[in-house]
């Protein structure tokens, strides 16, 4: 029941948001491929299925310890990070520009590092 309500609310919100976006003539997302080469699957497939690939892989990786699968978020980031910002988020970031356009909110970046090859420093406790 809760699930159904949430789904309905989600659909309605999505519809409203995309309507609003189109009405306001939101600029098309910037999809810059900075490292031309071969992706792990065809573009159409990636567009439709990337969330499922990553969603299933993340559970296998975290819960079963299966590492090195084709689809993995750090793999995506390493290829798709912007050469100027080093990141997949930010205004023209590969992930963010599309997600803003389609009004699909993700919370990957609350925990995952969006910058490619980032090295964080520790501090003295």
């Amino acid at each position: 029941m809760v699930r159904l309500l949430a789904l309905m609310a989600f659909l309605i919100m999505g519809a409203v948001a995309s309507l609003a976006a189109h009405a306001a003539g939101v600029p098309k997302p910037v999809i810059k491929i900075e490292n031309p080469g071969q992706c792990i699957a065809a573009t159409e497939d990636m567009r439709v299925n990337h969330m499922n690939m990553l969603g299933h892989q993340r559970d296998r990786s975290l819960r079963q310890g299966i590492r090195g699968e084709k689809a993995n978020l750090n793999g995506c980031i390493n290829c798709h990070a912007s050469k100027t910002t080093g990141s997949v988020i930010g205004k023209d970031g590969f992930c963010e520009s599309c997600h803003t356009y389609t009004a699909v909110k993700v919370d990957c970046w609350q925990c995952h590092q969006p910058k490619a090859g980032y090295k964080a420093a520790g501090i003295k406790p």
Binding site: N74, Q110, C111, H112, Q113, G117, Y118, K119, A120, A121
Partner: peptide, 12 residues
Amino acid sequence: TLTEQNPEVPRG
């Protein structure tokens, strides 16, 4: 809010 994570260690 965290922004300084290591890529292999997501935390937030």
